[in-house]
Design a binder for these strands. Structure first.
Length: 476
DNA sequence: ATGTCC
């Protein structure tokens, strides 16, 4: 990215004053190296987002931002419904509520080491992964609607996990306002047998060792101890979310001109929050959020069964579950005024600071765990939301490493088999149904996750708590 | 991300 078009505010904040049809400034959080390497498309897309009706304060890009559909991945934008604010399907993304959860095992890495191969094989056998993968659950029409209304709560009521899990999930495991009636039959048909499956692309299930502690107080509260093992699950709403995204994008492209919305890019298709299309999308999107929460909950249950077989007595308790692709109704203070806003986070994590009423009682005084999934074979991080985050990007942080290279480009540069072998030599076991998928996910096709996290930390978006290193990765 | 093109 050309730095001369940006005003540097600090070593990790860059500002673009409104020009053309921009209603608000755009802000990019990144250090000098990250922003220099950042795709020019991020500049174009984040300034386009700043032109949308009803946008509040600024359009934001996180340190892991890269080119997405309409909005950049790593983009955050909030809209005021009463000021003509809009909701955008491209602003949420196709994999609605894609997210990460991390489970505490209490096991020491040295005790898991002798079982690594067997754990990898057993997890790979029991947790369906890959394009079009199906699970054991079959949902009829009634079951589908109940799942779309209930989310992880539905899963727990059906024997997948416990009530205690729900306390550690955003929205308490169940997104209110879901309207299964707004979800097409086609979308539901695609999802009928996909609950409890990982999917493909950057989705994974990992066993990870806690290798560094940066904040002992927060780490203690999250029960993160150096040398212990956690399990992280990264997946989303599978075919259902994708179908909803596709259908509403089309509807919004058609509807936008009728609402007098002038789009700089048709990929930014949106509808006023106070409009039939806007409301229908929100109802369907919230149903897809519940689908993703149910999916991660069922996969958690399958993971627990594998551990119960190989390491009897192990208790996998949920530390936290965050979503990366959402539009949520939240209260934020803007210029001293508390306003109800619709916050789009696309490839960005909610990061509420200490005291936020939405946090579980046990964690309210310390802040929200922010789970950052790195690329395959590198590192992941756990951060905590900060007080000052409330004044930056509506309490949001980065979500991962962020791609630095297209999937196609990655397959020309790396071979799946060679990557699997190389990672195995480093003690990282990869299991995947697709060697091509592995090549697309080559660590070299991603930004440096440590640099991304460091920038988010220095920008005050969230504070580093612990670093995790992969031991086993089940890759979709 | 995605029954990787209805």
């Amino acid at each position: 990215m050309q730095l001369d078009q940006l005003k540097q505010v600090s070593d990790v904040e860059w500002r673009i004053a409104p020009f053309g049809k921009m209603r608000v400034p755009a802000v990019i959080y990144a250090d000098q190296a990250l922003i220099t390497e950042m795709d020019d498309k991020v500049f174009e897309q984040i300034t386009n987002v700043a032109t949308l009706p009803g946008i509040v304060q600024a359009a934001y890009a996180m340190p892991d931002a890269h080119w997405g559909y309409g909005f950049p991945i790593g983009g955050v934008a909030a809209f005021d419904a009463d000021a003509g604010g809009v909701v955008s399907a491209g602003g949420v993304g196709f994999d609605i509520s894609c997210g990460v959860r991390t489970l505490h095992t209490g096991l020491k890495a040295e005790d898991v080491a002798p079982l690594k191969q067997r754990l990898a094989d057993r997890l790979f056998t029991h947790i369906p992964a890959g394009v079009g993968s199906t699970g054991k659950l079959r949902l009829d029409a009634g079951g589908m609607d109940a799942m779309l209304r209930g989310g992880a709560r539905w899963a727990v009521e059906h024997g997948y996990g416990s009530e205690a899990d729900l306390d550690r999930i955003e929205e308490h495991g169940c997104m209110a306002g879901a309207e299964p009636g707004q979800v097409s039959e086609h979308a539901k048909r695609r999802q009928r047998d996909e609950i409890g499956t990982l999917g493909s692309g950057n989705h994974y299930l990992e066993l990870q060792e806690i290798v560094e502690i940066h904040d002992t107080k927060a780490a203690d509260r999250f029960r993160l101890r150096q040398g212990e093992v956690v399990v992280s699950i990264h997946c989303g709403s599978r075919g259902l979310g994708h179908q909803i995204g596709t259908e509403f994008l089309r509807q919004m492209v058609i509807a936008a001109p009728g609402y007098g919305i002038d789009l700089p890019d048709r990929e930014l298709a949106c509808a006023p929050i106070h409009s039939p299309v806007g409301q229908a999308y929100l109802g369907a999107m919230r149903a897809a959020v519940n689908c993703a929460l149910a999916n991660r909950q069922v996969i958690t249950h399958l993971t627990r069964k594998v551990f119960a077989d190989l390491l009897p007595g192990t208790h996998l308790s949920l530390i936290y579950d965050v979503s990366h692709n959402t539009c949520k109704e939240e209260w934020h203070t803007v210029d001293g005024q508390t306003r109800r806003l619709y916050v789009h986070r696309k490839g960005a994590t909610r990061a509420f600071g200490p005291g936020h009423p939405s946090l579980p009682g046990e964690l309210r005084d310390i802040g929200q765990p922010v789970l950052i999934g790195g690329s395959m074979g590198t590192a992941s991080y756990i951060l905590v939301g900060t007080e000052e985050g409330g004044t930056r990007a509506f309490s949001s942080a980065c979500h991962g490493a962020g791609r630095s290279m297209s999937r196609h480009q990655a397959t020309r540069q790396w071979h799946g088999r060679a990557l699997v072998d190389e990672l195995a030599s480093q003690g990282i076991l990869i299991r995947s149904p697709s060697l091509r998928g592995v090549a697309e996910e080559a660590p070299g096709a991603y930004k440096d996750v440590s640099a991304v996290v460091e920038a988010a930390d220095r920008a005050g978006l969230a504070r580093k708590v612990a670093k995790l290193k992969p031991l086993v990765c089940i890759k979709g």
